[in-house]
Simulated scan of single mutants.
Amino acid sequence: MVAKQDSEYDKVIDLKNIKGLTVFLSSRMRKSWHVKISRLSGHRTLTIPSYLENAPDEIKAALIDWALLPISNRRKESSLVRKSKANLEHRIQTYIKELNIPLRSTSVKPEVLEKRTMGCKFDLRSIFESINNKYFDGSLRALLRWGSRSSLTSYQSSRVAADGTGFHLITIAGVYNHPDVPQFAIEAVMYHEMLHIAVPPYRKNGRHVIHGPEFKRCERMFEHYEQWRDWEKRSLRTLARKMRRVPEFSS
């Protein structure tokens, strides 16, 4: 992560006579921030997006106050700490939303991705369109790609093309690109990632919720959900090990 210490926040820290806190700016962070505490010294390091360098003093103060809140197991947090944390985060997030910060740009070329959706057995574009029409009334749009060979993680992300156009990118784990993968499994993992577009993450009580109650309810609407989960537990890692042992498999 590209980060530098920020003198603007140092001024606020000095004015408040705060000890044991350093603020760093990160050029890679977009809409989040975090604090780390040294176990040895107790010194806190707050890392924030670089565009917050010139934020209003009240936002700087809110970030600093947030970084100084007691950190403990969430169940042990007092109601006062939780309320203070939620209020500070709401203030900061509201300011960030007003800035309308663009998503990180990417070197991914849509026209190139569309030529590479065909795997050894399944075409991601065909699977996507089938699921889109069946479960989402054809309303979703996304670019698709296979993950690295034998990779186990599928994910959905938001990107910005070179021309400034935003788009969703679904990456299907490379382990699914194998002749032994059943149709219901590739459809299920595609449905899961598409659901992240239809039911996006949100923040609640200062936490980033990805698989909330609504997401889980909708996920179980997929007709082969239980069959897919059972197959994943029994076969996914075994298949990944098999792919690592064999350099190539024929299509």
Rank of each mutant, 00 (worst) to 15 (best):
L15I: 06
K16W: 06
N17G: 07
K19Q: 15
K19F: 08
G20H: 06
L21Y: 04
L21V: 09
T22D: 07
T22K: 11
T22E: 08
T22Y: 02
V23W: 01
F24S: 10
L25T: 05
L25S: 07
S26F: 01
S26K: 02
S27W: 06
R28A: 07
R28E: 11
M29Y: 00
M29S: 00
K31Q: 08
S32Q: 04
S32L: 00
S32V: 01
W33G: 02
H34F: 13
H34P: 00
V35W: 01
V35S: 05
V35K: 03
I37F: 01
I37T: 14
L40H: 13
L40W: 12
L40D: 12
G42H: 08
G42N: 09
R44F: 01
T45R: 12
L46K: 05
T47Y: 03
T47H: 03
T47Q: 07
T47R: 07
I48E: 00
I48L: 06
Y51R: 10
L52R: 03
E53S: 15
E53Q: 14
N54W: 05
N54F: 11
A55L: 08
A55K: 04
D57V: 14
D57M: 08
D57Q: 14
E58Q: 11
I59R: 01
I59A: 08
K60Y: 06
K60M: 12
A61Y: 08
A61V: 13
A61G: 13
L63A: 07
D65W: 01
D65Q: 12
D65M: 03
W66H: 04
L69A: 03
P70F: 05
P70V: 08
S72N: 13
S72A: 13
N73W: 02
R74V: 13
R74L: 11
K76D: 15
E77V: 02
E77P: 00
S78C: 06
L80F: 12
V81Y: 02
V81E: 07
V81D: 08
V81A: 05
R82I: 03
K85Q: 15
K85R: 15
K85F: 04
K85P: 01
A86R: 06
L88C: 05
L88D: 02
L88W: 00
E89Q: 12
E89I: 06
R91A: 00
I92D: 00
Q93G: 04
Q93V: 02
Q93Y: 06
Y95V: 04
K97G: 01
K97I: 02
E98I: 05
L99C: 09
N100I: 09
N100K: 15
L103H: 14
L103T: 14
R104V: 14
R104K: 15
R104I: 15
S105W: 08
S105I: 08
S105T: 15
S105D: 15
S105A: 14
T106F: 04
S107V: 11
S107L: 13
V108D: 10
K109T: 13
P110E: 13
E111I: 09
E111P: 01
V112S: 03
L113K: 03
E114H: 05
E114V: 13
K115F: 01
R116V: 06
T117V: 12
T117L: 07
T117N: 04
M118H: 08
G119A: 11
K121C: 07
K121V: 10
D123T: 04
L124S: 03
L124Q: 04
R125T: 09
S126H: 06
S126L: 12
I127V: 15
I127Y: 02
F128W: 04
